[in-house]
Design a protein around this nucleic acid. Structure first.
Lengths: 196, 196, 196, 196
DNA sequence: TATGAATGAGGGTTCATTCAT
DNA sequence: CATGAATGAACCCTCATTCAT
């Protein structure tokens, strides 16, 4: 990698990280591109060399950060070897919830802006084979667990949506209860949904 | 009601309806207050006599419109007399889904902005006794159906979140499938969740 | 005085006092007529029955409040009976300075808006004979003290301007020094200026 | 200086001069930023690249214009070589008064907005060494004249305030007399104040 | 590739004043 | 006399985007 290419990558990273921190601290709406470039220490025009606009960089941040979390969670529970795959799913969920409890603003960012379309794009991204693998592994687990095999995608989707929604309202708004009180109920529901 | 009071109500209604249509057609972000007042045929300052800002009127629209839908759905299924309350819930859900299929933009509006906090405000609003009644009736039904009675609020909340998320992504993004393909799977999940 | 006339006077007083307090607390620029009427408990239109605009009521407040202070100061020092009239002037000045030290915001209000023209209007106002008398008495004192009798008005004017300016910058901005440090220097200057 | 830098300076100057003229002709309150930029022939946003707001540019104008006047006055009298420094001060004052007689609106602008704090900022400004030098020279002159040396700053301050106030009311309001009638009385007072 | 000055449309908000009731 | 809803001009300020350097 030439010196020039390194420099380019460095600038892009700087913009990426600056935007991430600003989105977390001030919210997307209140973050201007001029804030991002100032923090990154580059000129305003440079931003447009790497990203289309604010929402472009935002999408990229969300994909990267949530992929990271998913990989981390997967690696943390993978080796546990629960006999019942349902319990693996719940351990996986639990890891993510605990993480988001500590990182509330990421949750806000992701929840308000993570669409299924974006998620699919992440899965299909060539550079993100790992996420695709995890996704397939989860499906396989559910199938081996006895779940109707024709609807695996849909059920997994529902699980993700349910967990996401509950995290968001419980952790951020404490509604209808604190997340720790919601957890047992949520896990009971997951078990019911996944049961044959 | 005096002529003056009638006029006031007329103006507020005009603003409300204009904002509603504009939010639907152009989205909230792209709707300026100047658009709203122009469409309503009142002066800009008049807007601020009735609403704090754009998000204030938006909240009020969402509460009103979703309350209307809930009441309509409730009245439509109430008299059916299913022996099993689960089926009542599903009929209720089905009514709402069919409605939102025809009114996609309301769905967008509501989904992106309806928080549980807002919903609770609606339930507790003195002028909205009917919504409170429906909410309590749903809980009663779930209870009689044999659901664990200590977690009724939470389970109902989860149902609402799940249904809302699935509507949003299936109807709007057709992801992971069209809503009509999702329905049977969703209803199967609801039955599982509500089962004793 | 009829009940109606009493009511009228009552409303005007209410507006007057409300404006005074608001001007002190928020400054003139930041006080809107709607603030004044709200505090006074009258309708917006009523304001215009009694005053032309914000600056009209402001002028009236300044005249009234500064007249009050001058009378108070005059009554406080009048009886002292200094053999030298210069010392009477200084005692008079001192009383006013001490008062303004305790009432900084009145000072701001008055300094920024009290023009000589306004002051003359106050002196010539039929309802304010007392101020005119004080003014003439001060001149008489200066004259008896031996000051060139043809320039009495002008010298008195200069004294007032000098004292006013020093109060303003010393009390409010502490520039070039605190008022208590400025006092002896100021009084020395006054003595020099008034000396034959 | 590059073409770009020249252009920048040109724009700032254009804004500065436009604002100055508008403030003089319409008053500060009645001058909108949109007026300034229109006159300067630049876009609205450009204003905010160079000045914080209307009051920022106003402060800068006042400092610049009064510095100019002071320098001009100083250079005009410096070489006179009065044996008595009091007469130098009076010549200096006279020069300023004559200037302000011809430039009434600058007087208005300066009087209403020139605070001692602003003046001190001007003196301490690195780019304004000349003003500082003049100020120190005036003090030195007073001292050599025999004035109590510990209060030089304060007495000079009083002189400035007195002269400023008299200019303002005499030139603008002709109160209590026309400036030309006030001058001899004022100069007599200055002599008394400065005398040992 | 990188810069950052310049743009100017557009948004939100205020508020003195009027006038029908 | 009193009201207060309605007005709408006026204003400030932001900010995404462009483009000459």
């Amino acid at each position: 990698m030439s010196k020039l290419e390194k420099n380019k990558e460095f600038k892009e990273k700087a913009l990426f990280n600056s935007a991430y921190e600003l989105f977390l601290n001030k919210g997307i709406r209140n973050t201007a591109i001029s804030d991002i470039v100032k923090k990154a220490g580059v000129a305003k025009g440079t931003f447009y060399l790497y990203f289309k606009d604010k929402y472009d960089i935002c999408d990229k941040i969300i994909i990267e950060k949530s992929s990271e979390l998913i990989k981390e969670a997967y690696n943390a529970v993978d080796t546990d070897g629960h006999s019942d795959y349902t319990e693996t799913i719940i351990a996986f969920t639990d890891y993510i919830i605990e993480y988001l409890k500590q990182n509330v603003i990421l949750l806000t960012l992701v929840h308000k802006n993570l669409s299924w379309g974006l998620f699919k794009k992440a899965i299909e991204d060539e550079r993100n084979k790992e996420i695709e693998f995890i996704y397939e592994d989860l499906k396989k687990g559910l199938k081996e667990n006895g779940l109707e095999s024709q609807d695996l995608d849909e059920v997994l989707f529902m699980l993700i949506e349910l967990i996401g929604s509950i995290c968001y309202s419980s952790i951020i708004h404490k509604e209808p209860r604190e997340i720790d009180e919601m957890k047992p109920i949520l896990y009971r529901m997951i078990r019911k949904m996944v049961k044959k």
